[in-house]
Design a binder for these strands. Structure first.
Lengths: 353, 353
DNA sequence: CTGAAAGCGCTAACAC
DNA sequence: GTGTTAGCGCTTTCAG
């Protein structure tokens, strides 16, 4: 293990002072051409790299950004990370991850851990528990301490910071309109409890679409699953719910689900009943995973452009970090456009209502 | 933004020296009980936290570990990360990620980037290109420089370091044996090119099982897909291959695939032909994703225990990092047990051959 | 043109 | 008991 090259070592070897080396490597014109070249060649040869820790200590910035996500084994978040990681690297930043596991306290602990690591700013998506509790003091404090935060996907109005979200309500509305346009009339909604902002917004979008077309909203056709989140548990439970609902309301001719897992589960239940999808029954879903693509029939979805979301978030944060003192950009909320991907669980658009 | 508490500030406020503060906070008995308490109370009150950058500079270790993975939007890797992240956090380390994107050069760039960040060690899984090129100089050099590396999943014999792998050959053998035991005789194999170590090992396991049961290996039943890796492209291509192969060899009564995507694609092709799964045709696959669980019929798989793999890798690395000088543990290769998860694409075990 | 010195926050050996 | 000092690697101001 050869010891790391440092300014000190170079200085000693070349019999100059440390500061001369430092300047020479910065091509400071105060140093004679000759000395500069000698030092640069030497540094080059020995592959000198400045010690980033020392730089951090000096500059009080680490060029690392903290990323807090609720869950990593999750296509949506994985894709967001990939977007973040890409632009962060391009712009010279490292990404340090913390997983809150949907827990309020773990979210806080992780933030503290990362703050102690001297990250320059945060990109995060709030945990479910945080959203339920509506306790955002840790985030507000962080921002007050001068550490910028960018929220993505799961944000909260109460927190004043840059945000990257999709217009869930609008996207949901469009998806439901699409179902209506292809002739569906009785659309069951599978969503989350309302404390999950995005679930609520998607529910509202569903209602918007119905109202827009003069179709009454029937609470019986709305199922709000509680815990399972987008996790796998309780899949059984959801299947049962679908069966029961379809038993009670045989007029239902479509299901709109706020996430992939719900949708695939529902789709399987529907097909088990021998219903023809998409001939007699349609299914549409929000999604960002592989599940939709590989389900049979392949699931039509509202795609969330997760990677773009990550990129956008990273840019916002880094722009702010690199802004001149007092020149910080205004707080913005970027809305990422979502698009409907028609696959095989919906009919092609035929006539307008 | 209140300025950070530092030893210096505490010292100034309390009118003692910096080192007294430092010692007091460490509860050094050399400092009088009284002074200690006074200082501790003050520090506590102002929420003093040592600056980790300064500590890193002093100790020459950052308590961060670098994680290099080929791809993040991938269930297997996401799960591994989650395992790593969990034990790293427990043991007081941060995880910094770099994604090689299956590229040799990006793998190197990422490693350099992370080394410059002064990470204490690496956990990594080799990119496909690296495996194909068999060029491991960057890793060997890193190890030589005294930065420990733990390889998981995609390792190489040539590299001397701790490894966490699954016994792919053995696991594959068992999976194929299982198919044979449930009465399958003509098993098509969908695998990767041989330069992907794990693909090759799984192919060998397939052969082992056949030989063990006295069944000749027929190259016509083995399909080695080239690029698509476990990515989604070329799915069409694979479907076609399956159809062609089944046309030419109607005696085929099972497919064993080395990953989920291949398997689901094949499964869909098989079902499109009207074959009864698992009645007349079985499908089995390696997997670590959600796809298998949600496919219909749900796919029987060899589960890879990715989370455990991550945990194991993190422990190995941290143990080495924290070993006393000269007391480093022996290099080990941990083999993670894989298990067969019987779902609905295979028949229950009935009789032994 | 070059170098000495201070400082970023912390620790540790060594004085007093 | 407490303080001084040096040092981790680097930048930057100020002298020479």
């Amino acid at each position: 293990m050869k010891p790391k090259m440092t300014l000190k070592r170079i200085a000693r070897e070349l019999d100059v002072s440390i500061s001369t080396v430092s300047k020479a490597l910065k091509d400071d014109k105060n140093i004679s051409q000759e000395t500069r070249e000698r030092i640069q060649a030497f540094a080059q040869y020995y592959n000198y790299k400045p010690n980033s820790i020392a730089l951090s200590l000096k500059n009080k910035r680490s060029n690392s950004i903290g990323l807090i996500i609720p869950e990593i084994v999750h296509h949506f978040f994985a894709k967001v990370i990939s977007g973040i990681e890409r632009v962060a690297n391009e712009r010279g930043y490292n990404v340090i991850i913390g997983v809150s596991n949907e827990s309020f306290s773990k979210e806080i602990i992780n933030m503290e851990l990362l703050i102690d690591t001297n990250i320059d700013g945060f990109i995060m998506s709030l945990s479910k528990e945080t959203l339920r509790l509506r306790d955002y003091h840790h985030i507000k404090e962080t921002i007050n301490q001068g550490v910028p935060v960018v929220l993505f996907d799961r944000a909260a109005d109460e927190i004043h910071c840059d945000k990257v979200i999709i217009d869930d309500r609008q996207a949901s509305r469009e998806a439901v309109l699409r179902l209506l346009e292809t002739g569906c009339r009785n659309i069951m909604l599978i969503t989350t409890e309302d404390y999950i902002t995005i679930g609520r917004l998607r529910t509202e979008g569903y209602m918007d679409a119905l109202k827009e077309k003069g179709i009454p909203v029937r609470e019986e056709l709305i199922h709000r699953t509680d815990e399972p989140g987008d996790d796998i548990h309780e899949e059984e439970g959801l299947q049962a719910v679908v069966h029961r609902t379809l038993d009670e309301h045989p007029e239902i001719d479509a299901i709109f689900a706020v996430n992939e897992i719900y949708a695939v589960t529902a789709l399987n239940a529907v097909r088990l009943r021998g219903l023809d999808v998409p001939g007699a029954f349609s299914v549409m879903s929000f999604s960002d995973g592989v599940l939709a693509r590989h389900a049979r029939p392949a699931l039509s979805t509202v795609s969330q452009h997760a990677v773009q979301m990550g990129k956008e978030a990273a840019h916002l944060l880094i722009n702010r970090l690199e802004a001149e003192e007092g020149q910080e950009p205004e707080l913005v909320t970027r809305v990422i456009q979502s698009t409907i991907v028609e696959r095989d669980t919906t009919r092609k658009k035929v006539a307008s209502l």
